[in-house]
């Protein structure tokens, strides 16, 4: 299968950071190293030809017992070209941390807070990284695969 223009450009510019890439059902996916995330995102957004100016979605997946354990998933849309691209970033370690995209897309702010809340992945450079859905006293990160299903949280009294 021939590579789309987006993938070709990414491979051409960040050849050492690209781990894998594929195109399925008209959806381009590129898996890149964590260290290059901010640069790739900036390139996708600011390249005059590509112009991926819209951050559609930002989430994470917990592949328990795999190394690296987590994978960040970003979906970008180019409103000009009507192209979409999916960028995945494997993140691992006891304290998973990845660069924040809030400097490029302010919309990333709440998405990243949600990922932090549910998966416990920290974002370097995030202006206000705290829980967004659960309350501050909540213990653990509920969408992690090793979160105990029967766990009860401490009761929170009236403030």
């Amino acid at each position: 299968m021939e590579k789309s223009k987006t993938l070709e450009k990414i491979v051409g510019k960040f050849s050492e950071a690209v781990i894998d890439l594929h195109s399925q059902l008209g959806y381009d996916t590129v898996i890149i190293a964590k260290s290059a995330l901010l640069e790739v995102a900036r390139f996708l957004k600011q390249d005059p030809e590509l112009q991926y100016n819209y951050l559609m979605d930002l989430t994470a997946v917990d592949y328990w017992k795999r190394t690296p354990r987590f994978e960040m998933v970003y979906h970008f849309l180019s409103l000009k070209n009507k192209y979409r691209v999916r960028v995945k970033v494997p993140v691992g370690g006891a304290e998973p941390e990845v660069d924040s995209l809030t400097s490029l897309w302010p919309a990333a702010n709440w998405y990243e807070r949600e990922v932090y809340d549910m998966f416990g992945i920290k974002f370097k450079g995030h202006p206000d990284l705290r829980r967004i859905l659960m309350y501050p006293e909540f213990e653990g990160h509920p969408l992690r695969k090793d979160y105990p299903i029967q766990k009860r949280q401490p009761r929170v009294g009236p403030k």
Partner: peptide, 13 residues
């Protein structure tokens, strides 16, 4: 929900 529990206790009291 757990997050609403303090509100309910407040209403009850």
């Amino acid at each position: 929900s757990q997050k609403l529990a303090p509100v309910l206790v407040n209403v009850y009291e």
